[in-house]
């Protein structure tokens, strides 16, 4: 075999192997999607939205408490986390820029974005659940907000950075004060990017389970009292899936299906927002 033939052969082998790797990745995606859809479609019916959790074997059992709880917990965490994250990101991009403080905040946020979320759960347990004496929806909300903050902060920072300096200068030249330049010019320029960041941040937080296990805990019944434990789709899914009862497991699959469609949907919308912006 000549050297060239050998090179071509090795090339073919490596190309084949890495194409195979991609096929493996796609295989798992489709496998998981298939399982989610096949189990989910079978398990989903109107009862799920109409009824609260019930003991195993009960006809009238559903996920109403978990769906409502999930919306409340993720919703409030978003309402708190997004504005805070955007303002903090604004500081990094518009005021702090390359200063030591801003760089440190960037570094720490980067690390906290990948830090284990269960640790945040145990932290919130210590500062909220122990003093209050019981689990509460508020504790879950605080845990999710802490996880969300660095994500929104970093995307806002990156997206504001993309707005051309000339736009800011033009606004300054018209005599606008800095806060007006930021809120009326810079934010508008980065609208699509920030929106995408928010959608991806919400998607990321909505799937979190570990930090909710011992903060908002779980509840089999409908509750809207934020001072009390509250069900969430993720914790309910975990409890039902690990139970030995078939009807509970089925509800677990229904929860898994709803949650993953919601999260994949947010991800796809987020990407489309950026894409349409680029297309213009």
């Amino acid at each position: 075999m000549t050297a060239t033939q050998k090179r071509v052969l090795i090339n073919r082998i490596v190309m084949g192997l890495s194409t195979l790797s991609a096929a493996i990745g796609l295989f798992f995606l489709f496998w998981i999607l298939y399982i989610l859809v096949s189990n989910g479609v079978e398990a989903i019916n109107w009862d799920i939205f109409m009824f609260e959790g019930a003991p195993p074997g009960y006809e009238e059992s559903g996920l109403k408490q978990a769906l409502v709880g999930q919306l409340i917990i993720v919703g409030i965490a978003t309402l708190v986390g997004v504005p805070l994250g955007i303002l903090a990101g604004t500081y990094l991009s518009e005021y702090g820029q390359k200063s030591k403080l801003a760089e440190t905040i960037r570094d720490i946020s980067d690390i906290m974005m990948s830090a284990p979320s269960i640790v945040v759960g145990s932290f919130v347990y210590a500062i909220m659940v122990v003093p209050m004496g019981h689990f509460s929806a508020w504790a879950g909300i605080v845990a999710l907000t802490i996880i969300m903050l660095p994500i929104i902060l970093r995307t806002t920072d990156d997206m504001l950075h993309l707005v051309p300096t000339t736009l800011r200068e033009a606004a300054f030249a018209l005599g606008a004060p800095k806060y007006k330049v930021i809120t009326q010019v810079v934010y508008r320029g980065a609208k699509a990017g920030i929106l995408t960041g928010i959608l991806l941040g919400v998607a990321r937080v909505a799937g979190e389970t570990a930090p909710l296990l011992f903060t908002s805990f779980n509840d089999n019944f409908m509750s809207t009292d934020l001072m009390e434990p509250m069900a969430s789709l993720t914790v309910t899914m975990y409890n039902y899936a690990t139970s030995p009862y078939e009807d509970w497991q089925r509800l677990g699959w229904a929860a898994a299906f709803i949650l993953s469609m919601f999260i994949l949907g947010l991800n796809i919308i987020g990407r489309l927002v950026l894409l349409t912006k680029k297309g213009k």
Binding site: I35, A203, R204, G207, T234, Y238, T242, W253, S260
Partner: peptide
Amino acid sequence: VGVSIELLAAIPSVIYGMWGLFY
């Protein structure tokens, strides 16, 4: 393919766990 891989990364880990347990 790239987007598919990224979507796979977005699926919450609790779903991977459940899928692992049953399948």
